[in-house]
């Protein structure tokens, strides 16, 4: 469903301090795979999602989604294939517009927009049903402005908006990190529920190692712009956070040793 081959991106390339954010990323996702990405700050996790979504052009490599090479597609065109939820609950919705207007925009993801009424009776009924499934009482607040919602409500709405038109690929960028623990838990459960029922292919960045291991089907670890660890299946099922941390320091230690060897 997603195929990344040799993705590289260096920021500030023409300056005295170039910043290599991605260094030859290869990653392949089967349809229905739910991959969690972990790594320390500056590992390139968010940069990777931005590269896939087309926020900036990449320096080299190929991005293929659902059999289509989207490497040179502009961001808005990729939207037909890719749904996204950001860390900041403010980022995924238009605050001055109503809940139903936001959902209506999301329902037209990647489609041509014309002079039809943005929200009609049919879509309104459909939105009400979907919102009722969230269990947040939003189904009675369709015409409320989104800015009146709490962070958790907004993020749940964003999740619904990102998945309403069944994208080929869902990108989640620490989408529960800005919420309080209880709300984060609820949004995480909602995520699993939606992903399962729609059978989506997902890439999820998280800081929470436990979350990374018990969510989804596969976990990759990034460090300094590279994927240094990739685990799935039985091995992953048996893994604990402690194992993951050990693996992390072992791999980092090795790479440090390499550096020393090179310098020596």
């Amino acid at each position: 469903m997603l195929s990344l081959a040799g993705i590289s991106k260096t920021f500030n390339l023409d300056t005295p301090s170039p910043n290599p954010a991605l260094r030859g990323i290869d990653l392949h996702l089967e349809p229905g795979e739910f991959v969690t990405i972990i790594g320390s700050n500056g590992a390139g996790k968010s940069t990777l999602l931005n590269a896939i979504a087309g926020v900036f052009p990449i320096d080299s490599g190929r991005i293929v989604v659902d059999g289509q090479d989207i490497t040179n597609w502009p961001e808005h065109k990729r939207a037909s294939l890719i749904g996204r939820v950001f860390q900041d609950p403010m980022m995924g919705t238009a605050a001055s517009m109503s809940i139903e207007e936001n959902l209506a925009m999301a329902a037209k993801r990647g489609e041509r927009r014309g002079f039809a009424r943005g929200v009609n009776v049919n879509s309104r009924a459909r939105f009400r049903e979907m919102l009722a499934d969230l269990g947040l009482g939003l189904e009675n607040r369709l015409s409320d402005k989104v800015k009146l919602l709490s962070g958790g409500q907004r993020q749940s709405l964003t999740l619904l908006m990102a998945t309403i038109s069944r994208p080929k690929l869902l990108l989640l960028d620490e989408h529960t990190a800005a919420l309080d623990p209880k709300t984060a838990q609820q949004v995480a459960e909602l995520t699993n529920q939606i992903v399962k029922s729609a059978g989506l292919t997902v890439l999820m960045v998280t800081h929470n190692m436990e979350h990374a291991l018990n969510t989804g089907t596969r976990t990759v670890m990034m460090h300094e712009g590279q994927i240094i660890f990739d685990v799935s299946g039985d091995k992953r099922a048996k893994m604990t956070v402690a194992d993951l941390l050990n693996e992390f320091s072992r791999l980092r230690g090795e790479s440090l040793a390499d550096d020393r060897l090179l310098l020596g």
Binding site: E75, H76, A79, R84, M90, G92, T93, M97
Partner: peptide, 12 residues
């Protein structure tokens, strides 16, 4: 209102 968001929904 939120250009980043509406771009991510496929609007130029």
């Amino acid at each position: 209102d939120n250009p980043q968001m509406i771009r991510s929904l496929g609007v130029n």
